[in-house]
Design a binder for these strands. Structure first.
Length: 479
RNA sequence: CGGGAUGUAGCGAAGCUUGGUUAUCGCGUCUGCUUUGGGAGCAGAAGACCAUCGGUUCGAAUCCGAUCAUCCCGACCA
């Protein structure tokens, strides 16, 4: 009976062409549209709503950790930007710069922020005078611009939405602790909100952020076996603070330089959700961030009692705090099923005359298509636990895939073979940039995603240069 | 920045090799009736300066040149 005649609405299968599948989902689930400037996308209501949910979840956790939100300008004078050498070298190639203001040439061109370290430094310089002012933990929600050469919706764009936390501390210990604490926050949001497990750890010298002493990362595994950097936290040491002249009077009545961190996640998380959970029927959203958590599809909606029942159930669920939609459009039920599956709604409720007569309804889980028959009276009580179960199932499935992808290897041949298959491979090496580049070349794009361990068994040698190995690293091909 | 591809109705495509009256098809849209538990059926209707600019030609969606835009794959980055 199943017939899909409307083949233009179907999406490419993941196994046929994963990249095409991804763009199909972005477009057909109405998450985004392409704008008239390359690399810049329009966030459509459904896609933006996912971001709003992610924001809520992150923001409340930030605040629990003492972070306050601020907003700083989107433009940075070039002269200010140039103060930290490593930083400018890292970002200069991809900045967008305004050179005209009101038709007049600007003597100090304005850089559209690619990140706001220097603006926060400039602000903190004025705010800080005593150790009593510390710590300072500010965050801002904004967009940044990086002139990317190749772009993909949510994964890499010339403009993307994110949050950037910038903190100052009295001691190195506190600052390093903050970088790790925020990494835990990101990890928790992955686990409890996005149902995405991460590989996490410190970045190698080669992969760390421009200007950082240490960079920590969370890395997810996409369905096609490639890794995706989902968020980073950085310990900056005192480098930026020194370059920008940030000082405070310490407990010893001497001028001291604070220790600094920054941390951020972006709308790339939406891309991660799509590529970790999605299937050939479209998007699959974790309940915590789904703009619509339950969709109610009436069957024969003109039949007596159907619509009132649908609306009553909706009312009760909304009262209980859920995001619910009754699809009373005049499309056919089959069309609605396919449509809301495409959009990844976690739970669907069907109510038809037959159900109504028996006082029942049919519930379907998006993640695995499992159908459950429930009595109308108990549905409101059951939905919370069903949604919770969906979350658990999604996380378990993703965790299983991640765990099974990890293999331990000892040399370049094994590494190459492992990365060909996709997923993560752990290998010890010396940690030098030079060797890392050679590994990348030998594996056609394999990169060090995160350090698994800094304790290496005695006598282990780097398979590239033959010197003593210092770290065991997760390698993968990445987006 | 290299490699590949595409640009024809709101969307997706055919037509182009071999130039020839009125540019074809599907989806969507509109009207009406019948339907409704997995992308409904029938009948009718509207909708396109064929990406842009230039060239060849009696004649260009079609051939030639340039430009612009987008997508995909690589090198660099959230």
């Amino acid at each position: 009976m199943a017939k899909i005649q409307n083949k233009n609405d179907a999406i490419t299968s993941r196994d046929v062409d994963f990249a095409q599948w991804y763009t199909d989902v972005c477009r057909k689930a109405e998450l985004m549209d392409y704008s008239s400037v390359k690399g810049f996308i329009d966030y459509l209501p459904y896609g933006y709503a996912i971001w709003e949910q992610i924001q809520v979840q992150l923001d409340k956790r930030f605040k629990k950790n003492g972070v306050e939100n601020v907003y700083l300008p989107m433009i940075i004078p070039t002269s200010l930007f140039n103060k930290e050498k490593e930083h400018i070298q890292g970002f200069a190639p991809e900045t967008l710069v305004a050179t005209l203001g009101g038709g007049e040439t600007l003597s100090d061109p304005l850089i559209i922020r690619p990140t706001s370290e220097v603006l926060f430094c400039d602000l903190y310089k004025n705010l800080l005078s005593s150790y009593r002012d510390l710590p300072k933990m500010y965050n801002q929600w904004c967009s940044v611009v990086r002139w990317e050469k190749t772009t993909r919706p949510f994964l890499r764009g010339s403009e993307f939405l994110w949050q950037e936390g910038h903190c100052l501390f009295e001691t190195e210990e506190e600052a390093r602790g903050n970088a790790l604490t925020m990494l835990e926050v990101y990890d928790e949001v992955g686990r409890d909100v996005l149902a995405i497990p991460f590989v996490k750890g410190r970045k190698t010298e080669h992969e760390k952020f421009a200007g950082a002493v240490a960079t920590y990362t969370i890395e997810a595994l996409m369905h096609d076996g490639k890794a995706l950097q989902a968020g980073t936290t950085h310990y900056f040491g005192q480098g930026f603070a020194e370059a920008f002249g940030i000082r405070f009077l310490g407990r010893n009545n001497k001028l001291e330089v604070p220790h600094q961190t920054s941390w951020g996640v972006s709308t790339r998380l939406i891309g991660a959700v799509i590529m970790v959970h999605g299937d050939d029927n479209g998007l699959v959203l974790p309940p915590a961030v789904a703009p619509i958590q339950v969709v109610i599809v009436p069957i024969r909606q003109e039949a007596e009692g159907i619509m009132p029942t649908c609306n009553q159930i909706k009312e009760k669920l909304v009262e209980a705090g859920y995001r619910v939609k009754v699809d009373d459009s005049d499309r056919t039920p089959g069309w609605k099923f396919a449509q809301w599956e495409m959009k990844g709604v976690p739970l669907r409720i069907e109510i038809g005359p037959r159900d109504l007569q028996e006082g029942k309804l049919m519930i379907t889980k998006r993640v695995n298509g499992e159908k459950i028959s429930l009595s109308i009276d108990e549905v409101v009580d059951k939905v919370p636990e069903i949604l919770e179960q969906i979350h658990q199932d999604m996380y378990a499935k993703a965790k299983d895939q991640l765990d099974h992808s990890v293999v331990d290897v000892e040399n370049l041949e094994q590494l190459n073979a492992a990365l060909e298959k996709g997923g993560y491979a752990r290998m010890a090496f010396c940690g030098e940039e030079e060797c890392e580049l050679k590994i990348k070349e030998a594996t056609k794009g394999g990169t060090a995603r995160a350090i698994y361990s800094e304790e290496v068994p005695e006598g282990t040698l780097c398979p590239v240069c033959g010197k003593k190995a210092t770290v065991i690293v997760y390698f993968a091909k990445a987006y």
